[in-house]
Simulated assay, not measured.
Amino acid sequence: MRLASYNVENLFDRAKAMNLADWDEGKPILEKFAALNALLGELTYTAEMKRKMVVLLNDLGLKKSDTGPFVILRRNRGKLLTRPTDGSEIRIIAEGRADWVGSLELRAAPVDETAMLLTAQVMIDLQADILAVVEAESRPALLAFNREIIPARNGKPFEHVMVIDGNDERGIDVGLMTASAFPIETIRSHVDDKDADGALIFSRDCPEFAIPLKDGRTLHVLVNHLKSKGYGSQNSSDARRREQAARVKAIYQQRIKEGETLIAIVGDFNDTPDSQPLAPLLKDTDLRDIFTHAKFDNGGYPGTWGSCTANNKIDYILLSPALWETVKQGGVYRKGMWPGVRPAKWETYAELKKPVNAGSDHAAVWVELDV
């Protein structure tokens, strides 16, 4: 049985701010979007909050209209603000979240067509029986991709496709696709797990998928996408990622206590194996990273993202001791990634002519298990 994990970076549409070629340009947009969203969600708006809202609305291109270049403000009912006709500053007239109904949303843009097709080609060429998918827009999007785009590349669609909407408003969820011989029996979501202060722990979710095997045992696959370093301060991002890793550790140890032995924790953890935020999961459990297995081939590069240096090793397949003993082989699939130039670092598909054509900035990681 082949298990793989792949960050597809959205399938059909992606937030325009995340589609920008220069991440340094998109990052502040996402930060301001998050800050304004947080302020709009407050029960009571103070004068200082209103002042900050106006600044953020202007910065996001919403001074004259509810539709900006990267963000849309939807006002369904009630009154949030007024825009004076004389061109003066926006005024926030709502006194709190209960005074208006609506939302702040990121505008989406289509993914490059070649990139979409190469994402499908990676999925096909992995020949995975079980494929964890990171950054899928939704289950309908992943289902449509499976039914329409994979066959368009002469691939066989997966039989089972599951995504649970998570906590990220940008439409980047995690899910699982499996072949007919590996049906998903049960799913357990952790989308509502909270910390001691009542804040949601997971940026997306940490769904547990239970897959019955022919010998009567059950394979448990936990798919994750931990807090990125993309926006927010490093200290807050690191602290959030560490808390998420600690929660995943607790879930894993609970399943082991319950007698489960075949457990894989996979996905994009957004940090390196030696990092402190991942220590609860990588150093304080008996889980082992497939990259360290003697039968694993990293393809000549230690990383999984971007230039694939050691500092870019952020995608994982972690295996419980019982699964570790069943490993036959494993590797990294980079053919859909931009290889750099002078010289190209790795072989790519012929259609990959420029960075925007890449199926993803991430490599896919796979392992063959004798189960």
Score class of each variant (00 low, 15 high):
His225Trp: 11
Ile251Arg: 03
Ala294Glu: 15
Asn298Cys: 10
Lys229His: 10
Phe296Gly: 06
Glu258Ile: 06
Glu243Val: 06
Asn298Glu: 12
Val223Ala: 12
Ala245Tyr: 02
Ser236Gln: 13
His293Ala: 07
Phe296Asp: 05
Lys227Phe: 04
Arg240Leu: 10
Ile265Pro: 00
Leu262Ile: 09
Lys229Asp: 10
Ile251Cys: 01
Leu262Val: 10
Gly230Val: 07
Pro277Gln: 11
Ala264Gln: 05
Gln276Ala: 14
Leu222Phe: 15
Lys283Trp: 14
Ser275His: 12
Phe291Asn: 08
Ala250Thr: 13
Leu262Cys: 05
Asp271Gly: 11
Ala245Asp: 08
Gln234Arg: 15
Phe296Tyr: 13
Asp289Arg: 03
Ile256Tyr: 06
Asn298Thr: 10
Asp286His: 09
Arg242Phe: 00
Ser237Asp: 04
Asn235Cys: 01
Ala294Leu: 11
Ala245Leu: 04
Leu226Cys: 02
Ile290Cys: 08
Gln254Ser: 13
Ser236Phe: 04
Ser237His: 04
Gly259Val: 06
Ala246Thr: 03
Ala264Leu: 10
Gly267Cys: 10
Asp286Ile: 08
Glu258Gln: 14
Ser275Phe: 08
Lys249Val: 01
Lys229Ser: 12
Tyr252Gly: 00
Leu282Met: 09
Glu260Asn: 15
Ala250His: 06
Gln254Leu: 11
Asp289Phe: 13
Arg240Ile: 08
Asn224Thr: 14
Phe296Ala: 03
Gly299Tyr: 01
Gly232Ala: 05
Phe296Trp: 09
Gly259Phe: 06
Asn224Phe: 05
His220Tyr: 14
Pro273Tyr: 07
Asp238Thr: 04
Arg288Gly: 05
Gln234Tyr: 04
Ala245Lys: 01
Phe291Pro: 00
Gln254Ile: 09
Arg240Asn: 03
Asp274Thr: 15
Glu258Arg: 14
Arg240Lys: 13
Ser275Gly: 02
Asp271Leu: 09
Ile263Met: 11
Lys229Tyr: 04
Ala264Tyr: 06
Leu226Gly: 02
Lys249Ser: 01
Val223Met: 05
Ala239Thr: 11
Ala294Ile: 10
Gln276His: 15
Ile263Gln: 05
Asp297His: 13
Arg242Pro: 00
Leu282Trp: 13
Asn235Trp: 09
Val221Asp: 04
Ala294Tyr: 10
Thr292Trp: 04
Thr285Arg: 01
Phe291Thr: 08
Leu281Asn: 02
Ile256Leu: 15
Asn235Ser: 11
Asp284Pro: 00
Gly232Val: 06
Lys227Ile: 03
Tyr231Ala: 01
Ala239His: 11
Arg255Tyr: 07
Tyr252Ser: 00
Gln253Cys: 00
Val221Asn: 04
Leu281Ala: 03
Ala279Leu: 13
Thr261Met: 10
Glu243Cys: 06
Pro280Leu: 13
Lys227Pro: 00
Asp271Thr: 13
Ser236His: 09
Lys257His: 15
Gln234Ala: 12
Lys257Asn: 15
Phe291Gln: 09
Arg242Gln: 13
Lys295Met: 12
Gln276Asp: 15
Phe291Cys: 04
Ile265Phe: 07
Asp297Ile: 08
Pro277Lys: 12
Ile251Gly: 01
Gly299Glu: 02
Glu258Phe: 07
Asn270Arg: 03
Arg240Ser: 08
Ala264Thr: 06
